[in-house]
Each structure stands twice: as structure tokens, then as C-alpha cells.
Simulated assay, not measured.
Amino acid sequence: MASKEGHSLLTDQQRRSLVAYNHLTYLLYVISYFTAGILWILPIVMNYAKRREADGTWLATHFDWQIKTFWYSIVFFFIGAMIMIFALGGLGVSVLADSGNIAIGSVLFTGLGIMIMFFTFIWHLYRIVRGWIALTDNRPVP
């Protein structure tokens, strides 16, 4: 019978392998910050490839945590970028229309877009660090 945390669903070897795998995916997320996000796609692919092997165990929370972190980060970063692009377009219109009001609004919206993107960056980093600490402590993430 499986324990509450699903420890008996995996052999010790399987558990160690999935823990090491998760350490690698967390590391790749951190390294991706120094590669302009180029490595960002690799850990998400890796998480989808192995997540079913951890079903019913505390390790499944780490796969889901990283997948959700990736997708929410993409959505919020995209929203921030779209606001910024829209605002910069408004700034161009304000120059053509010689309108100070449109320019002020555009600058404010550009700031909002940048703030959303910055918040997303910090939130993503927080979730990677929080998840990695939980994995190091051999416990699930919420």
C-alpha cells in the first residue's frame, strides 16, 4: 500500500534519479537567466517528458510547480510586453499628433509594462529558488 506521500510508489533508485533530474531542471532555469532565456525552453520540455514517472509521489509537485511557473511567467511576461509595445506605439502617435497628453499616458503605460515584466522576472526566480530549496529538503512544493 502506498504511503501518504507516495514514497513506496518509486524504488529508491527511481526516486534518486527523479530528484537528480529535478535538480538539473532547476539549475537549467537559473542558468537560463545568463543565456538571455535561450535555455528556458529545455527544462520545460524535460519536465513534460518525465512528469508521469513521478505521478502519485511528492516529486510530482516539483514537475507541476516548474511547469506552472514556466507558463504563468510566459503569460505575464507577454502581457507586460504587449502593454509596453502598445504604449510605445502611443508615444509615436503623440509625436506625430504633437500631443503631450498621449505622450504622458504612453510613458505611464510603458512603465506599467516594464513593472509587470520585472515582477514576472522576480516571481519566476522566487518560485525556482523556493522549489529548489524544497527539493533539497526532500519535500513537496505547495
Score class of each variant (00 low, 15 high):
L9T: 00
L88S: 10
T25W: 10
L27F: 12
L135H: 02
V107L: 13
I128Y: 10
I128V: 14
Y126P: 09
M46Y: 11
G113K: 10
T120A: 08
L112N: 08
E53N: 01
A36E: 03
L10E: 00
S17H: 15
I122L: 09
A54G: 01
S73M: 12
G37Q: 00
V30M: 11
I79K: 02
L135W: 00
L59M: 13
M84F: 14
L27Y: 11
Q14S: 08
H62Q: 05
L59Q: 06
M84R: 13
S99K: 06
Y21W: 03
D137V: 13
T11G: 01
L88D: 13
T120K: 06
I74H: 14
L39V: 04
S3C: 03
L18M: 04
Y26D: 00
K4S: 08
G90K: 05
L112E: 10
G113A: 07
F78M: 10
I38H: 03
D12N: 09
N47L: 09
L9V: 01
A2P: 04
F34I: 02
W123C: 04
L135D: 01
L39A: 04
N101F: 15
D98Q: 13
L27A: 12
N47F: 07
S99V: 07
F70E: 00
T25C: 06
E53D: 06
V129I: 13
D137H: 11
P142R: 15
V107P: 07
V107Y: 07
N138E: 13
L91K: 09
T61Y: 09
W65P: 14
V75E: 12
G56V: 01
F76K: 12
I41W: 07
I133E: 01
V129D: 06
I41G: 03
D137C: 09
L108H: 13
A54F: 06
E5K: 03
Q13W: 07
F34A: 01
V129H: 12
F70G: 01
L88G: 08
I116Q: 04
D137S: 08
R52I: 15
I116A: 03
I67G: 06
L24Q: 00
A2F: 02
S94V: 05
N22G: 02
F77N: 04
